[in-house]
Structures are given as structure tokens and as C-alpha cells.
């Protein structure tokens, strides 16, 4: 599945999952996922993801960014990621990905953000619906 399609499918899939919405209910903010050179801007309001904006981005605000090569994200999205690719912190520790910017909102809403990223993996594996 194309990376753009994964992120395009994310808002509807995330917002129809009551447990995920509840995990993010206190989050109001925006962050970036970068897959290689491509940036995806995710706005979140009260645990619901708005329309994902695909880069290039010009002067758009965001608090934190998680950046990795497409091959890294593909491994993260696989059904059985290799050791070091199963979690954003594993990818950070081993230098596969970079987590940058204001990490405060990431830590405050960590379960939700990790849940969103896990969902991108499920979407990638299912190839959409």
C-alpha cells in the first residue's frame, strides 16, 4: 500500500475506534510523521484526527516529528518487525528513526500516539478496506 494512502485512510479508521478516541481525548495538537522525504501533518482535536496534510509543508506548525526512512517504517508496519523496529523508542535507540521537536505533547499523549502509529501498521497490512 502506498504511504500516502495509509495516511489518507488514517483519520476515518482512527476516529471510528472508540478506545483510541478515548485514549486521545485530552489531546489537542499537531505532529509530523516523515517517511523518507515525505512529510505527513496530523492534526488532532480531542482524540480525533483531522485531515492529514501531505507535504511539502511551508511554515506549518507542529510540536514533534518522528522521522525515518521508508524502509524503516515498512519494517515497523510489518506483522512481525525485527528487533529494534517494533516501537518508536526502539527505532530511536538504535538510530533507525529520530524523534524531534517538543516532546512534551508526545509524552503527555503517548498511549494515543503509539496507538495511532500501530493503526497505520494495521492499515498498511490490510491494504485498505
Amino acid at each position: 500500500m502506498e504511504v500516502e494512502a495509509i495516511f489518507a485512510a488514517l483519520p476515518a479508521r482512527a476516529n471510528e475506534d472508540p478506545a483510541l478516541v478515548r485514549a486521545g481525548r485530552h489531546m489537542h495538537g499537531e505532529f509530523l510523521i516523515e517517511v523518507g522525504e515525505r512529510a505527513f501533518h496530523l492534526p488532532v482535536t480531542a482524540g480525533r484526527v483531522g485531515a492529514v496534510v501531505t507535504g511539502p509543508l511551508r511554515l506549518r506548525s507542529w510540536s514533534f516529528a518522528i522521522r525515518g526512512a521508508e524502509s524503516v517504517w515498512r519494517e515497523f508496519w510489518s506483522a512481525l518487525p525485527a528487533p529494534g523496529f517494533q516501537d518508536i523508542f526502539a527505532m530511536s535507540r538504535y538510530g533507525h528513526a529520530r524523534i524531534e521537536g517538543d516532546l512534551g505533547p508526545l509524552l503527555t499523549h503517548l498511549r494515543y500516539v503509539k496507538g495511532l502509529l500501530a493503526l497505520t501498521g494495521r492499515i498498511a497490512r490490510e491494504g485498505g478496506r
Binding site: 516501537d87 518508536i88 523508542f89 526502539a90 535507540r93 516532546l103 509524552l107 503517548l110 498511549r111 503509539k114
Partner: peptide, 27 residues
């Protein structure tokens, strides 16, 4: 594997944060 300043953040007082911090350590 994470910055020491995180320990001074209020999140560390929250169980759901501690769980999310370590969740990726489960295979």
C-alpha cells in the same frame, strides 16, 4: 535510552504513561 529530564515531567506520576513508556519493550 531516554533523556533524564523526562523523569521530572508530570507524566511520570501517571500509570498510563509508565505503561505506554514501556509498552514497546514487550515483544
Amino acid at each position: 535510552w531516554y533523556d533524564g529530564s523526562w523523569l521530572d515531567r508530570p507524566e511520570f506520576a501517571r500509570g498510563d504513561f509508565c505503561a505506554a513508556l514501556v509498552s514497546g519493550l514487550v515483544a
